[in-house]
């Protein structure tokens, strides 16, 4: 099963069965975890441009999903869309707590890197991230916009989501999303001048 937020009817049915099993069976939740871990982590990374923060957001997302899955009611929306929403809310909450500023730059994070047994992987990831200069520049400007614009621009351009998928993830109408995209890109353009 591919990690998608827009599934065909048969795949949606299969996922519904898996989610129902996961509500009572940790191993079934593990299957969902394996399907969606990578895309949630990369989504968090694209929103935050910070490897350690993206890892934390990913951890919180799955912990919250596990804690709330028994209350999860299937509404013919892919499970991935729910995870994206949790992750997006966590990211927004994080920045609100920090007063809208990122707590550290990439360089500062490199100094704070822990010496745990996956510190090497994090260091390599940070190095890899730092090579994407154009993305980091766009992200820096994007981070100055209100979170509603950051969300739609990240999902549309960095996550390559279709509008229909964004409707399911954000729980907003298609017209609203298009309007946010239009205004968001305009504001980003102004920031980049």
């Amino acid at each position: 099963m591919k990690p998608e937020t827009l599934l065909s009817d048969s795949k949606l049915k299969a996922e519904e069965e898996l989610v129902k099993r996961a509500q009572h069976n940790p191993e079934a939740f593990g299957e969902l975890y394996e399907i969606y871990y990578q895309c949630i982590f990369n989504f968090a990374l694209k929103r935050t441009a910070n490897v350690q923060l993206a890892l934390d957001i990913t951890s919180i997302t799955f912990l919250k999903a596990l804690n709330q899955i028994r209350k999860f009611r299937w509404r013919d929306v892919p499970f991935g869309a729910w995870l994206y929403r949790i992750a997006g809310n966590e990211i927004n909450d994080h920045y609100r707590r920090q007063g809208g500023k990122r707590i550290a730059s990439i360089e500062e994070i490199a100094e704070l890197a822990d010496t745990g047994d996956y510190a090497d992987e994090i260091n390599h990831a940070e190095e890899e991230l730092s090579r994407h200069e154009e993305f980091l520049l766009l992200h820096k400007k994007l981070a100055e916009l209100p979170e509603m614009y950051q969300e739609v621009i990240t999902l549309k351009f960095f996550e390559k989501k279709k509008i229909r998928e964004m409707v399911k993830i954000l729980g907003k109408k298609e017209g609203t999303i298009k309007s946010l995209l239009h205004r968001g890109v305009e504001k980003l353009r102004e920031k980049m001048q």
Partner: peptide
């Protein structure tokens, strides 16, 4: 833009 896709 080239998007980073990483895995830890």
């Amino acid at each position: 833009v080239e998007i980073p896709e990483l895995l830890i």
